[in-house]
Design a binder for these strands. Structure first.
Lengths: 417, 417
DNA sequence: CTGGCGGATCTCAGTCACGGAATTCCCCTA
DNA sequence: TAGGGGAATTCCGTGACTGAGATCCGCCAG
């Protein structure tokens, strides 16, 4: 029981902020529509008057964030002018910093990858070297892409947790020795000259889903990130939940198997000790499912072992199938804990290891989840795979910037301190 | 994998809404200050200009929501006029519907209980009878309190989950047979004539904390409600999290004891099968800790047994102490799951069974929580007991109305559909 | 006792975003 | 080619916040 922190008071709002907010609302509506929207449709959707829509559209057109894209007229009357996002109206850079690999992307306004690269994380994990390598990679990528630097809104970085969001630092993540309280934000801002945002990888993935994931990125959902570890990103009512220090989504110690293996926390059957890829691979090795190939449970070997485990399952190996199916049961339990706590409407799966699991998981998880859902009699919970692909981390990092700049967050309305 | 719901689009905002919002912001600032605030202080806190504060203050004074309460001048210059909440400026009614007891309160604007009553829930739990009894009780309470009906903003109802927030219905809660999809909201609105809001008991408790709990009700926290069952209310950045259907906070099936007793969900050691009062009492009976008195694990007997268990612990009975201490360990594990998932800054305990547990829990939980907190190296997590007392449920229900009417929710800014 | 001073609050315009009504624009139909 | 209907724009009005200056109100020095 420590002393209670001085609360940050809620602040008021004023006219200019209202205008900016409405602009982002309209941009958001256009972004979320499949084929663009006309001004009348916008008025109907966002609830503002047609004149206001007209004015804001003009501002958006001036800023080149949207373009008029043809007309659409069926019956009599003046045909509607369709407004669409202008993909090249803004760009964002994203970096996914992973213990093993650094992925970098240039994203355009609609969330499409313009250019991407992947390099192994420089050996030794020395922060200085890694930061220098990232800065260089970004410089090369920007030049390669031919994008006007002036249109790049900033750089987003997705880092493994824990992080300190206020400081922009990475706080001693597992598998990255020497990274205790490294100020990634300031270091990269200095090195690249771009405004930089740092966030946790799972949160970034969730942001990627809201920005580039289509309808599955709306409303309230959790993003289950299947990576070296398992974590989740949380979005409630279209706004990302980051938590006090940016560390929301730590679900590694949810107990999912009372009969499971011991965990470093002293209990048994936690997520991180019973269903992360490394554990599945170890289990498979022990059972002799993986004949041949490199053994080991570090970095790349896990990926390889995991791929062979999935191959075996696809080839019909009962033991391999059992391992994966069991992991689906366990993951579903963890998901149920979170969905029962937050009462969300959807679970989106993704992350580097998701691709190989998707078919079996999508087969099993929905029923398991429904069986354990407290609100099951009121509403079902959708279970879907992300459409964003393997690079969610880096794409999400870039989306952090877009979200920060353009999303209609309530925060945007409030006066600053 | 069901089809994806049509997302509710985010809506714009306009001038009148902005004004109303700022009014609630100012009211909120005054409410949260200990001894009232002057106009200049308000300007500083909420970030609006002094003139705007002046204008809004006038509106608030006209509405009698605030009063000028003396002056405060130390040095030279015109002394500041202190603005305070006017307790009798608005009232709200709250009902806590529990399987065993119905608590009703009249709350004033500052969150003080003006009048309260408690009756046993009419036998048989027949919804019609219960609703009629509540309506009658409310009528009597309002008359008794002598409060001007015109100043009563509405009626809040805290019900055990699950609920359907959109419908205002209670959906088959445990221990209340015959209550499947009973529309409490419409029934009570009809019967009493007051605008009625229905919410889950744990959510109401969390709202009570934000409204009447002082500094521990600010920012991001979870409210651990220790009642017949254990649930939690969630508040993130000063806004209550209700979930898609109002059922957020269902933590009964978080596994906290891999060696615990079997649960109806098929697993072992869930919260609801290992640390709710009923289980503790049963355990105590089994061990012969509770000599004499009524036995049983239904309704009032649990309360009685629980009281005797606590008496025994207070008297130094090692077995009783062990039972309660173990429950603290288990509850702390559940709390850790939620705080790690949401990265909140505070845990507030409360509810009918909290009083007797508080001393031992406050002794043990903070350390246990810190040991299991993922973000422990970045920030600690405060653990406090609520100041709201045993009637949190009913008080929270009334606070639902106040919150709905007066809290600066972002939602208030957005245009309606 | 009185004028000066400093700070709080109010008055009075001024600015700007949204809203309503009327107008213009544009394509389809007859 | 004229008429019609729906989309988008123009023009003006309203209202909320802002800035500058005026006013109010006690303390303090003379």
């Amino acid at each position: 029981m420590t002393e209670i922190r001085q609360p940050t008071p809620r602040r008021g709002t004023n006219l200019p902020r209202m205008g900016d907010f409405n602009l982002t609302v309209i941009l958001d509506a256009i972004r979320r529509s499949s084929g663009g929207l006309s001004r009348v449709e916008l008025a109907q959707i966002v609830g503002l008057s047609p004149q206001t829509i007209s004015n804001i559209s003009r501002r958006l057109l001036d800023q080149q964030l949207i373009v008029e894209a043809g007309k659409e007229g069926s019956g009599p009357g003046k045909p509607r002018t369709i407004l669409r996002l202008n993909p090249s109206g803004m760009y964002a850079l994203g970096v996914h910093l992973d213990p093993a690999v650094i992925t970098t992307v240039v994203l355009d306004l609609v969330g499409d990858v313009v250019k991407h690269s992947r390099i192994p994380t420089p050996g030794g994990c020395n922060p200085q070297h890694v930061i220098a390598a990232i800065a260089e990679e970004i410089k090369a990528l920007v030049e390669d892409s031919g994008v006007d630097t002036g249109k790049i809104a900033g750089l987003g970085v997705a880092a493994p947790g824990p992080i300190d969001l206020d400081q922009g630092t990475v706080v001693d993540p597992p598998l990255m020795t020497g990274w205790d309280r490294v100020n990634l934000r300031d270091a990269l801002a200095d090195a690249t000259g771009f405004e930089t945002l740092v966030d946790k990888d799972v949160t970034s993935a969730a942001v990627a889903e809201t920005w580039a994931g289509g309808p599955s990125g709306t409303g309230s959902f959790i993003f289950m990130y299947m990576g070296t570890g398992i974590g989740c990103g949380i979005v409630l009512n279209d706004e990302v939940v980051r938590g006090t220090s940016g560390n929301a989504g730590e679900i590694g110690h949810i107990i999912v198997d009372p009969d499971g293996p011991e965990c470093d926390c002293g209990l048994r059957g936690c997520v991180k000790s019973s269903c992360i890829p490394q554990v599945l691979v170890a289990e498979a090795e022990e059972q002799g499912v993986l004949n041949g190939g490199a053994k080991g449970t570090e970095g790349p070997e896990v990926q390889e072992g995991f791929a062979r485990l999935c191959d075996a399952a696809d080839a019909g190996d009962e033991r391999a199938i059992a391992i994966i199916d069991k992991s689906a049961v366990l993951v579903a339990r963890a998901v149920a804990v979170v969905t029962n706590t937050l009462d969300v409407e959807r679970v989106v799966f993704g992350g580097p290891f998701w691709g190989r699991l998707s078919e079996r998981y999508l087969d099993r998880v929905p029923a398991l989840l429904a069986a354990n859902s407290a609100a099951n009699s009121i509403h079902g919970i959708e279970v879907v795979g992300t459409g964003v692909g393997e690079d969610v981390g880096a794409i999400g990092a870039a989306c952090l910037v877009l979200e920060h700049t353009l999303a209609p967050r309530a925060q945007r309305l409030l006066l600053e301190g």
